[in-house]
């Protein structure tokens, strides 16, 4: 492990040097295995925020209060520590720079991580496919990759829109509220553009958003790809 960076009050990003890492496509995940001194192990999957061929990869992990692995990664892990990882994994929830359909991204909280890899892949590949990101967060300080997103949103090919659920910036025109049909409809492409969508976040969030998206009849159901975490 090379470096960590605070992303939000409960999350940080982790840079890893992985000798022999074969590179990864945007949206893939990996398994992290921790081993205690008595041999006890715990494995969890994390989305990869970075993309491309290098051997340095980036994860971003939100601490789950009752979690076993995420509190260690967020609070304990130090530069120089070693981690066992396996991956990259998954070939479904992925975006390729050669894809041509307009892309609607919708993230809830730390669900931004695999979508960030897609945004980075879009940027570094020079793709001019239109990307819309609708990003639901509790408050402005809960935004992952805030500075980078601000810079990337200068691109004419990426639009970033925030939904604040608990606390909005002082001058924000909309009172804090959970994501609505109106917010999704306002950010969406038209059906004629044949968009595809990637939705990632907590289970309840993804269920709500995906149901709204099907109801809008803009997306064919099989073009909405989802990734959920947590129970209900």
């Amino acid at each position: 492990m090379v470096e960590t960076r605070i992303q939000t009050p409960s999350a940080r990003s982790i840079q890893l040097d992985v000798p022999g890492w074969p590179g990864n496509i945007a949206g893939q995940h990996l398994d992290v295995r921790l081993t205690a001194e008595d041999g006890y192990t715990a494995v969890r999957s994390y989305s990869i925020a970075s993309v491309g061929d290098g051997e340095r990869i980036e994860l971003a992990v939100d601490r789950l209060p009752t979690g076993e692995v995420s509190p260690y990664l967020v609070e304990e892990l130090r530069a120089g520590d070693q981690l066992e990882v396996r991956g990259p994994l998954g070939t479904y929830f992925v975006w390729h720079p050669t894809d041509t359909a307009p892309v609607q991204l919708i993230a809830g909280g730390s669900g931004i991580v695999p979508l960030m890899a897609m945004i980075r892949s879009h940027e570094t590949s020079g793709s001019t496919v239109p990307f819309h990101l609708l990003y639901s967060v509790r408050s402005p300080r809960d935004v992952f990759f805030a500075d980078e997103l601000r810079a990337l949103a200068e691109s004419p090919h990426l639009r970033v829109t925030y939904v604040y659920t608990r606390q909005a910036p002082p001058d924000w025109p909309i009172a804090p509220a959970r994501i609505t049909t109106a917010a999704i409809a306002a950010d969406a492409f038209s059906r004629e553009e044949n968009p595809v969508a990637f939705v990632c976040g907590p289970t309840g969030f993804v269920e709500t958003v995906a149901d709204i998206m099907v109801g809008l009849r803009i997306f064919a159901p099989l073009t909405i790809k989802t990734e959920r975490f947590g129970g209900k």
């Binding site: 929830f93 149901d211 998206m213 159901p221 909405i224 790809k225 989802t226 959920r228 129970g231 209900k232």
Partner: peptide
Amino acid sequence: TEDFPVLSAGPTP
């Protein structure tokens, strides 16, 4: 786990 996580590839039909 005590709860019941959901793994699905897309919207709930």
